[in-house]
Design a protein around this nucleic acid. Structure first.
Lengths: 195, 195
DNA sequence: CTCTTCTCGTTCGATATCGAACGATAATAC
DNA sequence: GTATTATCGTTCGATATCGAACGAGAAGAG
């Protein structure tokens, strides 16, 4: 199918990002398997672990590629960017949350969430209220419109998630998920003692 | 850097680890396994594929967590942010590259790369020159200082990559990498025909 | 040759995001 | 009680990033 078949090279490290809008533009990929380039070039004498490099860099590449894919295929038409979508999703799953926790769950800084909530609130998709028992806390929840939006959007989103992993067996999917969780746990242990 | 990243809301099924009340920044985690929450709440009647959701969202979480980890532990002290580091790395591996291709390899828009190169050039880590045979092209390469920097930095970087995946066997690492590549290839096939 | 069309890299304006600083509130110490 | 310390959400300024628009250069049509 005309795609530059050879690619997704056996160790294509550079994450590529398709430069969205144009569509016509950034489709090129490295023509040469990276391992080969590496062998030829710098890394020869330098005890580099190619396996870990390949895994880590492919995680990044996958993340941006997936995000771009979903933003273009579904989120733009819903008028949401990634983080706003994630925030809605969290509220849908967990029910109301205080701002601090929602920021953690959504993976953004609390200051970022503040802006996101302003936007969502202006569109009447979420509501904020002060917790009376603890007046420092602000509780966020979905409005009816917000719930309607996310409960329509997420099943479609999830169907597409399923589509992009469809070539993996259940065992492969589970193994990959477990591996990533193991990495996350390892990083957490490295980072947490220090702070 | 040093964002108080939490996580992409994902099936942190085994996660736990509440860091107690203290943790001033975003280290808190969901106390409740997500699958349970999901069961209790919305998704009950909605044919949601939890496995694909877990994999996709953990990829995102891993990406931001890894990136933050490296930015804080190594890149900040070198005065680089993520994309600048990746750009240097690409130039180190591939040798000189025209701007267009470097943007693709580094995973940023060409306009973004332009700014990154301005910074790197000001620090005398890279050099730009016009390709005489094709005067639209700009070729970028490392200066001696740039090469010295990245060839010192990357082995340390790679050692840390190896550390964060150290709990995985070679087979697990390979399986995870393959799975992610399969996902990338699938997305490429989905996106490319349409444009 | 001239005109049109295409392809580069850069510039520009808009937006997302972060960390730090801030005011409000709560908890603790004395 | 009052003072100090800690925690919350918001505001603010700085920066990263993108897409669109632009100008320079190249390629093709006639």
């Amino acid at each position: 199918m005309t795609k530059q078949r050879g690619e997704v090279p056996s160790a294509s490290i550079g994450s590529k990002r398709t430069t969205g809008g144009g569509g016509k533009s950034g489709r090129t990929r490295s023509k040469k398997p990276l391992a080969e380039v590496l062998g030829e070039q710098r890394v020869a004498g330098l005890r580099i672990n190619l396996e870990s490099m390949a895994l880590v860099s492919n995680i990044h590449r996958a993340s941006t590629t997936i995000r771009d894919h979903f933003e273009r295929s579904m989120l733009t038409e819903a008028g949401l960017h990634w983080s706003a979508f994630v925030a809605l999703w969290c509220l849908w799953i967990y029910g109301e949350l205080e701002t601090r926790r929602l920021a953690v769950e959504a993976g953004v800084a609390k200051s970022t969430l503040s802006g996101i909530l302003n936007t969502l609130e202006a569109r009447k998709l979420v509501r904020r209220r002060v917790n009376e028992a603890e007046r420092r806390l602000v509780i966020v929840n979905l409005t009816a419109a917000g719930a309607a939006l996310i409960s329509t959007l997420f099943p479609r989103f999830n169907a597409e998630e399923t589509r992009i992993v469809a070539r993996l067996s259940h065992a492969e999917m589970r193994a990959a998920t477990d591996a990533i969780r193991t990495i996350l746990a390892t990083i957490a242990e490295i980072d947490e003692p220090a702070g």
